Simulated scan of single mutants.
Amino acid sequence: MKKLISSLLVLGLSSYTYAFDYNLEPKKINDNTWCFLGKLEAPSKENGGFMSNHCYVSTGKNYILIDSGGTYQLAKQAYEKMSKIKKLPVHTIILTHDHDDHWLGASFYKEKFNSKLIGVSTINKNYDKNSKTRMFNTVSKDAIKNTSIVRLDEVIEETKSLKIDNFEFQIFPVGTKAHSSEDIFVYTPSTKTLFASDLVMNGRITSNRDGSVIGQLKAIKMLEKMDYKNLIPGHGLDTSKNAINETKQYFTLLKKRVLKAVEEDIGSAEVTKHIKMEEFKDKALYEELNSRNVFDAYNELEFYEEE
C-alpha cells in the first residue's frame, strides 16, 4: 500500500485537479494589491470566461475586491491563489458595471464569506436568479459550474468613501453612459492606485456596444484628474500610469473622424469603409469589434453638436 501511495505521489496523481483549470497567477501591483489579468480575447470555452481583470486589495485583516471575475470556478481558484499570499476573508466586493465577465464570480464569495456586494444598480435591475447571461451560453459546463446570479446588497449612486480596517476606498460613478449605461471607478489614496475597469482597455480594441463616445471621453477626463501611480484597466496587461493612453487616443480619434465623416455627408452605410482606425489594427479583437464601434459612433454623433 505504501508503495502504491508513493507511486501516486511521484505521478502527481495525489494533487487536486480542477475540472477547468484557469492556471492563474496574480500580478502584484503594490504591497496591498494583486490583480488577475485576463486574456485579450472574447469569452470562449477555451478561456473559460477569464478575459477581464479583477483585483484583490488587502486592508490588513480583510480583502476587498474590485470586480470578481466571470465564473464561480474562476473566483474559487483566484481565492485559493491569494490564500497562499495572505489567507484573509473577502469582506466586500465592488462591482463596476453590469457586463457579466466582471461580476458573476461574486457568487463564490457570497457563498463562502457572505461578502457584501456593492456596485451599479443595473446588475439588480437587469438580472435575477433565472437570468442566463452571455457567460452561461458561451463557456463550458465545467467552467460555469456552481455560478449563479446574486443581488447587490448596496447600490452606488453617488461618490462614496469606504473604510475597511482604516484603509480607504473612494468610489466614483461616472454619472452618464460611458462604457455601459452605468460605470464606477475606484481609487485607493494610500497606494495611489486607480481601478478604471472597462473605462480603460489596452492591448485590445474596446467594445463600445453599450457605451458612448462622448461618455467615454468624459470618463477619461475624470480619471486623468486623479493622482495615481498605477491604473488597472478592465482588460489589458499594462497597469502603469500610461495604461490609459490607448483608450484616450482611440476615442479621441474616433470622435474626430466620425464628425468629419458626418460633415462630408458620408452615410452610415459607408462610414466603416472610410474610418478604419488603422493605428489599432494590430491590437487584439480589431477585426471583431472596430467596425461595430465606428458604426455605433456614427449613429451617436450624426446630430451631435459641441457644447
Rank of each mutant, 00 (worst) to 15 (best):
K2H: 10
K3F: 13
L4V: 14
S6G: 07
S7F: 14
S14N: 14
Y18N: 00
A19I: 08
Y22M: 00
P26S: 11
I29N: 06
N30L: 04
N30E: 06
N32Q: 12
W34F: 15
W34S: 02
L37A: 01
L40F: 03
A42L: 15
P43I: 09
P43Y: 04
S44G: 14
N47V: 03
G49Q: 07
Y56T: 13
V57F: 12
S58W: 07
S58Y: 06
T59P: 09
G60E: 08
K61W: 12
I64Y: 02
L65K: 03
L65P: 02
D67K: 08
S68A: 15
Y72L: 03
L74C: 02
Q77I: 05
A78R: 07
M82G: 05
I85N: 01
I85S: 05
L88P: 06
P89V: 15
I94R: 06
H99S: 10
W103S: 04
L104H: 04
A106W: 00
K110F: 02
K110G: 03
S115A: 14
L117Q: 02
I118C: 05
G119R: 01
T122G: 05
T122I: 10
I123F: 03
N124M: 09
N126D: 11
K129E: 12
K132F: 05
T133F: 09
T138V: 10
T138E: 13
V139S: 09
S140F: 06
S140W: 09
S140T: 15
A143N: 08
R151Q: 12
I156F: 03
E158N: 11
T159Y: 02
L162K: 03
K163D: 13
N166M: 12
F169K: 03
F169G: 00
Q170G: 00
V174D: 01
V174I: 15
E182W: 02
P189Q: 10
P189G: 08
P189A: 08
S190L: 12
S190M: 13
K192I: 04
F195K: 01
M201S: 11
S207Q: 07
R209I: 14
I214C: 05
K221Y: 11
M222N: 06
E224R: 13
K225M: 14
Y228M: 04
P233N: 04
I244C: 10
I244M: 12
N245A: 12
T247A: 11
K248E: 14
T252F: 06
L253R: 09
E263T: 07
I266Y: 08
G267M: 07
E270F: 11
H274G: 08
E279M: 14
K283D: 15
K283P: 04
S291I: 06
N293L: 08
N293T: 13
D296H: 14
E300W: 08
L301Y: 03
